[in-house]
Amino acid sequence: MSSSTPSDPTNAHHSGGFPAQEQEQPGLTDETRPEPDHGEESYRGAARLSGRRALITGGDSGIGRAVAIAFAREGADVALTYMPEEQEDADETARWVTEAGTRALPLEGDLRDEDFCAEIVERTVGEFGGLDVLVLNAAYQKDREGLDKLETEEFDRVFRTNLYAQMFTARAAIPHMKPGSSIIVTTSVQAFNPSPGLIDYAMTKAAQVAFVRALAQELGEKGIRVNGVAPGPIWTPLIPATGWDEERLASFGQDTPLGRAGQPAELAGAYVYLASDHASYTSAAILPVTGGKGL
């Protein structure tokens, strides 16, 4: 993104609360009000990822779509995974990628399936001829009434989506990644400041931080960098699908030092930086994009 003069970050995007709304998981863009800003009209590329081949899990909407658009405008081909219910969102993201002049590869399936995680890597490598950037972004969260009411089936869904899928996908991808490649994990401020109502989600996000730091040590000698981005409260379809009430949505993001929730477009630059050669000496880092909330 660029502009002639600096913008005030406190009002650069939607600065109030959000209206009452509810969606079923995984959440859809056209049912989210106001619609999130993924940088469709604002992101300007500078050829920082020319010729790179990227795979983004959960790339159909929210943060994943913003990263897909930015990567494409920086010159990367983009494969993206999505659930069957997210077909319309995936088609729209793929359209933005191809309009940027690069190749899009939508991959439909459930990342909880170990075989699908291996398949998406093989299909990306087969279509693009290699894999340079892996963004492990897909996630599931739901508001919890209390640990004593948390059903094993739900707990298992969170862990399989947020942790198992990342392990499965990274395990399949690493043999294809050459020196200069990059793995980027979407963790969360919840890893450091967990909310009781997101206890299982927060546990997985804390585990992702350990995953980033351990894997960065393992892969450093191979010239593969591993980093994470820790978003704060970001307005995506996942939020109205979390199950929060009217009061919680009305106050969403209002407790940050910048006084508002963030938009997916505001994270794109962090992923571009970590994927690019500008971050050649950055590994094992967790980059906060939190509106000023500390980690």
Rank of each mutant, 00 (worst) to 15 (best):
Y140F: 15
A79G: 14
Y140Q: 11
V67I: 15
A165M: 05
Q166H: 15
G58Q: 02
G75W: 05
P34V: 11
A241K: 07
A250R: 14
S280I: 01
H176S: 04
L55M: 13
F211I: 11
E114M: 02
I174D: 04
G220P: 13
R160G: 01
F159T: 09
H176V: 01
V212Y: 06
Q217E: 11
E86S: 15
G180T: 11
G262K: 07
G129L: 08
A54T: 14
D245S: 01
G130I: 09
T282W: 00
R123T: 14
P9L: 14
A90I: 13
E221A: 15
G243P: 13
A90H: 12
S61T: 15
Y140R: 14
R33F: 13
P257G: 06
A214C: 04
I69R: 12
G16P: 04
C117T: 07
L215E: 07
N227Q: 06
T32R: 11
S3F: 02
A54W: 01
R65D: 04
A54V: 02
R52L: 05
D115Y: 00
D89K: 12
R144Q: 14
G16V: 04
A207P: 03
R73P: 09
G292P: 08
Q25E: 07
G126N: 06
T124H: 03
H176M: 00
I120L: 11
A285P: 00
S181E: 02
Q87W: 01
P19A: 09
S2D: 08
G294Q: 12
